[in-house]
Design a protein around this nucleic acid. Sequence first.
DNA 1: TTATACTACCACTATACACCACTTTTAAAC
DNA 2: GTTTAAAAGTGGTGTATAGTGGTAGTATAA
Lengths: 143, 143
Amino acid sequence: MFMGTSYNSIDEKNRMIVPSKLRAGLGTRCILTKGLDRCLYIYTTDDWEKQMEKIAQLPESDPKVRAFIRHFCANAAECEFDRQGRIIIPQELKAYAGIEKELVTMGAMSKIEVWSRDVWDAPDNDSKMENEDFAKALAEYNF
Amino acid sequence: MFMGTSYNSIDEKNRMIVPSKLRAGLGTRCILTKGLDRCLYIYTTDDWEKQMEKIAQLPESDPKVRAFIRHFCANAAECEFDRQGRIIIPQELKAYAGIEKELVTMGAMSKIEVWSRDVWDAPDNDSKMENEDFAKALAEYNF
DNA sequence: TTATACTACCACTATACACCACTTTTAAAC
DNA sequence: GTTTAAAAGTGGTGTATAGTGGTAGTATAA
């Protein structure tokens, strides 16, 4: 279970540190991919493979399924840590998340989220919930 | 499991690089054929044979099945890598995928897809899923 | 025999990767 | 609170290799 938030940066070689506490839960490698919001997800290889198995069951004759598989795989990168615990962020993913220099890395249950700090702190960032909205949303699910 | 996206080009001799990370999963040769969308598929020789077995189960009495077999098999080419890791794209396949110069190569589970970059980036390319649709699809398939 | 096309091999360049050194932060002991 | 040590994070450098372009050799056809 990943938790906690760290503030770090990415260098000119597109290397980012995975904070050591989070890294401990990942082993020697991890899967980096596009998130649902304007962020990146880091999965354990185990979790990733479970998802792939599920996807492999879907019928390829359906064009939606093909597009889904494409999106899922093409935007994913298997990353290995260097000796300092860094991974390399592919250009495409870096651009998607609007990452330039400063990062926010946070544990989110079974995965890790990576945000551009500017995007995360932006006043119009709907992914960051204020208290009232929070409660309302939870109420809908009888939490 | 093939994943990730690369941007490369084809030269006047119809040679294309298979990106090294993808190539690592292919061995010394591979099967190249027409895909279901306007792209080419690259299979490992093993997976190709599995596909053939699957197709062999389909009822040949159906003309659509026969057309599919033709589409898939008639244009399949067994390709060997040269020392630089390139394969040669037959004219027929090149034309089918609308390939001229720039390519997009992406991993898609058990196969690799090769797209003309122009075709892939075309605004009317509905084989490319947008993020909102992806989120919906995730929900649909219970992820 | 000549010309053309195709294939295999070779050489160069840019990029990516692995390694090393340093700085900063955190934790612990006195 | 201060000092010390260990770990975490950052930056830079050199080497290997991936990717591209080109050349030579072989085969095929005219």
